[in-house]
Design a protein around this nucleic acid. Sequence first.
DNA 1: CGTGATCTTGAAAATCGTCAACGCCGGTGG
DNA 2: CCACCGGCGTTGACGATTTTCAAGATCACG
Lengths: 271, 271
Amino acid sequence: MERVFIDRDRVCHNKVIADGEETRMASQVLPTHRPRLQEARCQTCSLSSLCLPLALELDDIDSFDAIIHRRPPLKKGEHLLRQDDPFTSVFAVRSGSLKQLTSEGDGEEQLTNFYLPSELVGLDGIDEQTYPGSIVALETTTVCEIPFDRLDKLSESLPELRNQLYRSMSKELRDDRRMLRLLSRKTADERLASFLVNLSNRFRRRGYSPYSFRLSMARADIGNYLGLALETVSRILSRFQQQKLVAVQGREVHILDLATLESVAEGEGCR
Amino acid sequence: MERVFIDRDRVCHNKVIADGEETRMASQVLPTHRPRLQEARCQTCSLSSLCLPLALELDDIDSFDAIIHRRPPLKKGEHLLRQDDPFTSVFAVRSGSLKQLTSEGDGEEQLTNFYLPSELVGLDGIDEQTYPGSIVALETTTVCEIPFDRLDKLSESLPELRNQLYRSMSKELRDDRRMLRLLSRKTADERLASFLVNLSNRFRRRGYSPYSFRLSMARADIGNYLGLALETVSRILSRFQQQKLVAVQGREVHILDLATLESVAEGEGCR
DNA sequence: CGTGATCTTGAAAATCGTCAACGCCGGTGG
DNA sequence: CCACCGGCGTTGACGATTTTCAAGATCACG
């Protein structure tokens, strides 16, 4: 009756935590003349190798840096923006994490994305000039605001920047397709495994341990995102734990057997 | 036991048929010197108001038109490109329709998108410089090939073109989010209703009847796309027919009660 | 230390998938 | 022209993964 694991296919695209170091830097906004929030510059940002200015020359980074607005940190649960707000900017996550919530008609909200440091928020607002979902901080989170009209203008003269922008959108499209596949063809076990593997990969890319991390989202968020009831998420995590694939307590995750987890995510194993 | 309809929420993003008139124009490729396949120009294309050059001045359309390659029509079942082919171009659908198939690992293929006339194919290949899925014609289909490097170059000097490109990608992102929502939270009935409503809207936008159209895809394709077994698709279409929401015979669809269909898609009605 | 949010676990219900058989349509070939 | 064949679609019955409902347990924060 009970399957050890389940399987069929693979991957997904999700996103989580990582309290970046730069949280400190901007975390207290002094009264009067703002103590150079701006001193956080792209040139010194530890994410610059992952972020939009990735391919730019130093001089060009300066131009790019000049159009950025740093924002005071968002606290857990605060909105960066709300669904249907007019589109003005895209945002790069500096530290912390965000979720995107979309509600249509009356129905409840669908969690359509998690955003981690270096990722761009808001690209899906360009077309209709409004944001298609609300963006909410999962923890203390800092973002860089990039006014889109100025970014567009700048991308005219900086082919590398333009290219990076195209690539960011393209990557998001590709990730979405993976997610479609996950929701359409994967079992609950495969979804959870995919989710964990994806997180692991994203942490690795950012220089964090791919084996130990803290989930910044609740079980309900995970379930909402993966198209599962939160109880199902909980149950399967427990089972993965029994099977020694992971050690989970609360939101702290340790991946014990990444290889097997990957094969579960891919739908190999049984069936 | 049997629910009349089911419901919760709404929308999706899919695509279908419409044998454009320009199919004729390019449909026989004569031997030697090619009978001016090129005579199909953006300036005379009936889709120009929906397609990339949408916002361009006449002169600029000429520049754009100059980089386009027209291709001989694809026959039903033929590949426009295959998954993992190197990314070189994006394609605008002139007539007919296409589907995108993505296979990962060993698993079977997931149908991730349908493409209708005026829509752009291949934008999700920019990032990794390979196409993330195969593109297959659902019927006789003609496309315009747009080499991406030249498009990118041209977009440097044509802000409207650049903008339109951003918007196309952004729209696809937004549609994907809708689709995520569909797969994640909607019942089978809601999915089918969403699918039909979405098709209806897309036909309307293109000047075709939103009430009568022909599906260019098989039930299996619809099921694959919506994350349902093809039997489920069939059953629910039958039920919709009983309920006088639609009249379906084979691939011919007549929408009888669009309003109710929309409310089913939105998840209103019961529950 | 208490209170509410979050998480876990159990049992029952239900939607949907799988298996299977049958019918329809179009095409091909005799 | 008719018959056979294969692809495609329909319908039924059964089974099962997952949801729902419910009750506790644990955690986090004040």
